[in-house]
Amino acid sequence: MIRLNNIHKSYEMGSSSLHVLKGIDLHIEQGDFVSIMGSSGSGKSTLLNILGMLDNYDNGTYHLSGNLIANMSEKKAAKLRNEMVGFVFQSFNLISFKNAMENVALPLYYKGVPRKKRNLIALEYLDKLGLKEWANHMPNEMSGGQKQRVAIARALISQPKIILADEPTGALDSANSYEVMDILREINDDGITVIIVTHEHDIAAMTSQIIRLNDGRIHEIIRNGELKQFQKEYIHGLETA
């Protein structure tokens, strides 16, 4: 599904350049539920952006469903994003002057689905996430948890293969965070690959695979079986902290 081979990425910061990713090799299968962890500046968001084709990389290869993602035109990248990937952001990134239903329907607009049909589908998705009554509300009339659910509905509506979530619970309280994680879990159960970036251990612990980044490199990959061990470590970490 996703195959990264020796990915390098650096940012120009004026005269100096910041080497953010220093050779990432990664293999994620269809249907995985992965979290990417790491301290700030470890390159986790950059990695997610490269996975989502929001950003390009300097060196290495990135294959998505067998296609090499490199030097694509903006147009082709946009089309691929539309078809393959759904994004969920920490700050929700809803369009403020559109109501919930219109926000959810927007990806279908770029797919060329007629207005009535896409609004109907959007309502369906909002219903799935328990927000049917809020369809005609503007984003600023909704709570953070509701906004994030709208954003998830928007990510799902184009039936992507992958959901990429950048700190999806970062702006939410714990109750809402767990709710969002439950939703992502359900999505994953339907066979969609879910990759989240988080720095919260309890959130990461709900995924089936944790990739820990440290200073632009993969520090360790904790798989399902080892999660218990991770949780122990996490509690230990809490105690020592």
Binding site: A78, R81, N93, L106, Y110, K111
Partner: peptide, 16 residues
């Protein structure tokens, strides 16, 4: 700009 970013993230092409 931000709205444009959102639109592009969910599949808007530059020309659109």
């Amino acid at each position: 700009t931000k709205e444009i970013g959102i639109r592009k993230a969910i599949g808007a092409s530059p020309s659109s």
